[in-house]
C-alpha cells in the first residue's frame, strides 16, 4: 500500500530574464493517510511553491521541471489541464493563507460552494446546497442555512477561513494542503482552526501538508516535520525528535529564535543575515554564510541528503549531535 502522497525529487523552476530560479530543488517527502506533515521554512524557502506544485497551480513562468508527485500511487506530473482539474478540489484540496482574499467578494457563499461541488459531480442545486449547509455546520459555523446566502465580507476572518475549510472538505479529499491557514488570524482563532482541521482530518482520514513559518503551530499538530531552506528540505523527521534534538544548525537556529526558548529581558537569539537569492546561491551549503558551525568543506560542495538516526534525513556535513 503506497502512501497518500509521495513526492520524489520535485523540481519547480521559474525562468526569468535574470536566470533560472530553482524555487523547489529536489524535494522528496511522503505523507500517509491521516498523517500531518509540517513543511517549515522562512519566506522564499520554497514551501509555498512546493504546495502549489502538488496542486498543479504553479503559474507561468514557473513550471515543474522534474521529479514525481504520486497521489495514492498515481503520477500527477505531466497531467494536462483537464487531468489536473479532476484532481484539484476533489482529490487534493488547498486552504490558503489569507481568508480575506480567497473568497470572491462579489459572489455569495452558496454560489462559491455549490460550484465547487458541481465542478466534480453532477448534482442538482438543492442537493448541493444541502451538502454545503452540512459542510458549514461541520466546521462550526452557526446557523449555516442563513449564512449560505451571505457574502464573504459579512464574515469575520476566522469564519471566512472556516468557509474555506468547508469548501476544501466538500469532496472528502485524500490530501489537504494548508498554506499558512492560520497566519492571518488571531491566536485564539488560530487554535480553534487548528483543532478543527485536526478533528476533520481524523474523521475523514485525509493526509495533510501544513505549510508554515511558525514552528509553534506545527509542533502541536504535525506527525513529521520537514524544514526547507533555499528550495531544499534540509532536515526531515518525526516532529518531536526534530524539535528536541535538531540535527541541522538552521533548525537549531529557528528553535533558538522562538521567544519561548529565550530568557526574559535578554535580546532574542536570531539567525544572522537573510535567505540567499536563489539566483546566486553559494557553491557549497546554501546556509553556510549564516551558519555558526560552518567549516571549510561546507563552502565547497552541497551537502548530500544523508540518513540521520533511525528515521530522519539531513543535509549537513556537520550535524549538531549524533542522533540516538
Amino acid at each position: 500500500m503506497s502512501a497518500t502522497l509521495e513526492v520524489a525529487g520535485l523540481e519547480t523552476h521559474f525562468v526569468t530574464r535574470a536566470g533560472v530560479v530553482k524555487a523547489v530543488d529536489g524535494v522528496s517527502f511522503s505523507v500517509d493517510r491521516g498523517q500531518v506533515l509540517g513543511l517549515v521554512g522562512e519566506s522564499g524557502s520554497g514551501k509555498t511553491v512546493t504546495g502549489l506544485s502538488i496542486m498543479g497551480l504553479v503559474d507561468a513562468p514557473g513550471r515543474i521541471a522534474g521529479g514525481s508527485i504520486k497521489l495514492a500511487g498515481k503520477e500527477l506530473v505531466g497531467l494536462d489541464e483537464r487531468g489536473w482539474r479532476t484532481i484539484r478540489g476533489r482529490k487534493i484540496a488547498m486552504i490558503f493563507q489569507d481568508p480575506m482574499m480567497t473568497l470572491n467578494p462579489v459572489l455569495r457563499v452558496d454560489t462559491q460552494m455549490i460550484e465547487a461541488i458541481q465542478a466534480h459531480e453532477d448534482v442538482a442545486n438543492d442537493v448541493a446546497r444541502a451538502r454545503c449547509r452540512d459542510a458549514l455546520g461541520r466546521v462550526g459555523i452557526p446557523s449555516p442555512e442563513e449564512r449560505l446566502s451571505a457574502y464573504p465580507h459579512q464574515f469575520s476572518g476566522g469564519m471566512r477561513q472556516r468557509v474555506a475549510i468547508a469548501i476544501a472538505l466538500l469532496h472528502n479529499p485524500d490530501l489537504i494542503i494548508a498554506d499558512e491557514p492560520t497566519t492571518a488570524l488571531d491566536v485564539t482563532i488560530q487554535a480553534q482552526i487548528i483543532a478543527q482541521v485536526q478533528k476533520l482530518a481524523a474523521e475523514t482520514g485525509a493526509a495533510i501538508v501544513w505549510v508554515t513559518h511558525d514552528l509553534a503551530v506545527v509542533s502541536g499538530l504535525s506527525d513529521r516535520l520537514a524544514v526547507m531552506y533555499a528550495g531544499r528540505i534540509i532536515e526531515e523527521g518525526p516532529t518531536a525528535e526534530v524539535l528536541t534534538r535538531p540535527g541541522h544548525p538552521y533548525t537549531a537556529g529557528l528553535l533558538a529564535s522562538l521567544p519561548i526558548n529565550n530568557p526574559r529581558g535578554r535580546p532574542l537569539n536570531q539567525i544572522p543575515g537573510s535567505t540567499p537569492s536563489l539566483l546566486r546561491l553559494p557553491p557549497g551549503c546554501p546556509f553556510a554564510p549564516r551558519c555558526g558551525a560552518c567549516q571549510d568543506d561546507c563552502t565547497v560542495t552541497r551537502p548530500p541528503e544523508t540518513r540521520f538516526g533511525m528515521d530522519r534525513r539531513l543535509r549537513c556535513f556537520h550535524p549538531l549531535e549524533a542522533s540516538a
Binding site: 497551480l57 482539474r85 482574499m101 474555506a164 469548501i167
Partner: peptide, 17 residues
Amino acid sequence: LQEYVRFARAKGLSQTR
C-alpha cells in the same frame, strides 16, 4: 492575480467558469 482566482482553480473549476 487575485487569490480568489487561485482558490477557484484549486476547487477544480473550469477556466470558462
